[in-house]
Amino acid sequence: MKNMMSVVVALVLCVLVTGLPAQAQDFSHIEAILERLDAQSRFDNTDFSSVLTMVVEDVEKGIEKMVVRQFRRDDGERFLLLIQEPVTEKGQGYLLEGDNLWFYDPSSRQFAHTSLKENFQDSDARNADFGSNSYSSSYEVEGYLEGTLGNFEVYIIDLKAVDDTVPFPFVKLWVTKDSDLVLKTEEYSLTYRLMRTGLFPKYTKVGDVVMPVQMVFIDELVPGNKTQISVSEISVSDIPDHVFTKAYIERVNR
């Protein structure tokens, strides 16, 4: 009888143990955080412009400073990035029109189709870093931990891309518990190798939007390569429609 009881207990335990992984973990509050992250990164009601100062550190090429003027209109998924420094690249521009991202080179006076997945110039930033976030639609939550980053209590969230339209198939986010700020990101390759770390130490509030004004992207494959970006001259004034056109990029170069 005692033996039978132990068999039953073992069976029940076995069912419980094997049944546990089958139970879906509840990530609804994490998903809600992702939705809030996406929402607070979008300038839906206003236009946005700023100046980005980028310091690109490359172990082989040395340090290069770039100044880029940024115009954004998230309603319609548009942005324009105009390079102002260095002089050799002045006039080059990136124009996003919905799903199409164009690169303009004033020396050839031609537009070439490019992708949000590509790196911005020779920096460690990607073209996609200059638009709004889409964590909630592009990724699903794989798991999360609670921890601290410096003095901040954070959720460490593991994300997996829902399809292959995003450049990084796996992403890890460090999000503050109390204010929904992404302090750190880690982006992984399809073979789950860490490729890039992003640090976002400073934020500012512009209307309803919370945006990082200092960003550091570290290339984890080539030790020593990193890019620091500072955002200044922030404005939410209306931007004329013609700014988000190819003709404008061509005209400002004349």
Binding site: D164, P167, P169, R193
Partner: peptide, 8 residues
């Protein structure tokens, strides 16, 4: 990858 995802 063929679809443009990063890989190492």
């Amino acid at each position: 990858t063929l679809t443009g995802q990063q890989n190492v």
